[in-house]
Amino acid sequence: MKSKQFSILITLLLGVGMASCMKNLDNAGLVEAQRNDQEIKNYLLANKLQDSVTSTLTGLYHIITPANSGAKQTKGGEELEFTYVLSYIDPSNTSRAVVVDTANRTKSVYIPFLSGVVIPGLQEGLSLMKEGQRGRLYIPSNIGFGNDTRDGKMPAYSAIIFDVQLKRSRTEMQQIDDFVRIKKLSNPILVASGIPADTNKVRVYKTTQGTGEKITAGKTVTVAFTANMFRATTAFSKSDSLTFKLGSGQYITGFDKGVEALSVGDKAWLVFPSALGYGSQGSINQSGTYVVAPYTPLAYEITVKSVK
C-alpha cells in the first residue's frame, strides 16, 4: 500500500496529468508561459517587489529569507518537511493573488526530495532553500501546473505563487533516529549487512525475548511480520506466517540479515536504511505506483515462530 504522505503530495503538488502536460508542452503552452512571465513581472512591480526578487533560467522568480542563512541546505534523497500556501496571480488584475490552498499553512507535509515528486518550479525552489528559510516562489505554468485547474479552483495555465517555509531536510539516519525515539526503542543489536558504510547496518530492537532455537544462516524460518514506512498509516506488506530460507536472496537484505539475529519466540523491530531495502529505485507495483518510495528507510515488526 502507498504511503499516505506520498499519495497526498502527488495529488496536491504534482497534479493530475501534470507529467504528460510537461512532456507535451505545445506552442500554446509556450505562449501561456510567456504570458505568465509578464503577469509575474506585473505583480512584482505592482506590489513593489521587483528589487527583492531573483530569477532563474527556468523562469522561476523567488524571494528567500533570511538570505544568508547558515543552516543546512536541502539535499536530494533526503526527506523534506515544509508548510505552504498556494495562490495564483489573477489574470484580470495582475496586482492581486488569489489563494487556492491553505490546508498546509501550519500543518507540515513530508516528501522524499526526488525529481518528479512535485512540480518542477516547486522542486527548484526547494533546492535553493535551507532549513528555517521562507520562500515565495513565482512559477509560470510551464514549470507549474500547466493546464491543470486544481479542480476548478484556478484558471488553466495560471502563474502560481507558493509561499513555503522549509522546516527540515533529514537524512535517512536522522529519520531512523527520530523513529526510534518516538517508538521508545532502546539497546539495539547492530547487524552488519555486507554493504560498505557504517550506516548500512540493521538495528534490531528486541521487545520480547524468546527461549527457542537461535537462527543461523541457511535455516528455513517462519515469521509473522508487518513492514512499515515511517510516515505511512498502514503497513505496505504483512503476513501472519511467512516461511523462507535465510540467505536465499528472496527478500531484501535488511529483512534477511535482521531475522538472522533472532531466536524462536523473539519479537523485535528491524530498522534499516534504504540501501538495505529498496534503495534508490523504490518498489513499484504493476500499475506503476510506488509501494515504497526511493530512499525510504523501513521498519519491520517481527515475531519468529519456528526454524528448521
Rank of each mutant, 00 (worst) to 15 (best):
I176N: 01
V191A: 07
T102W: 05
S69E: 07
T220S: 15
T208V: 15
K72R: 14
L270R: 02
K107S: 10
N147H: 13
A159W: 10
Y278L: 02
V117G: 01
F145Y: 14
S108R: 05
K219A: 10
D163V: 02
P91E: 12
V259C: 04
V16N: 04
A197Q: 08
F230M: 11
K167L: 09
D51R: 04
T102K: 13
S158H: 02
I160R: 01
E260Y: 04
I40H: 08
S237D: 15
S287R: 12
V307Q: 03
T207I: 14
T303A: 09
G116K: 09
K238S: 14
Y61S: 11
Q50Y: 11
G116M: 06
M22Y: 07
I89L: 09
L270E: 01
A19H: 04
S248D: 13
G210S: 07
L9D: 13
S306T: 10
G254R: 08
S274F: 13
V85A: 02
K257D: 04
T106D: 11
L9F: 04
K75H: 10
R168D: 07
G144I: 03
L14G: 00
Q5V: 00
L80Y: 10
D148A: 15
V221I: 15
V221F: 15
F225C: 08
A97P: 00
L114N: 13
E81S: 12
D256H: 11
F162Y: 15
T233W: 01
G17I: 07
M129S: 09
Q50S: 12
E260M: 09
M229T: 14
G15R: 05
E124T: 10
L298A: 00
E32S: 13
S287T: 10
I111V: 11
F244Q: 03
I89C: 07
L242C: 03
T296W: 03
S87P: 04
Q34A: 14
I284N: 12
T171G: 08
Q175F: 00
A192I: 01
G218C: 08
F162T: 00
G279M: 11
Y110N: 09
D178P: 04
I195P: 00
L86C: 09
M22W: 04
T74Y: 06
Y43A: 04
S69F: 04
G218W: 02
K75I: 00
K257S: 03
K308P: 01
T253Q: 13
I10D: 06
Y88T: 00
I195V: 14
G279P: 11
K72G: 01
I8K: 14
S193M: 02
L9K: 07
T234N: 11
N228A: 01
V16A: 12
D90N: 15
L276H: 06
G254W: 00
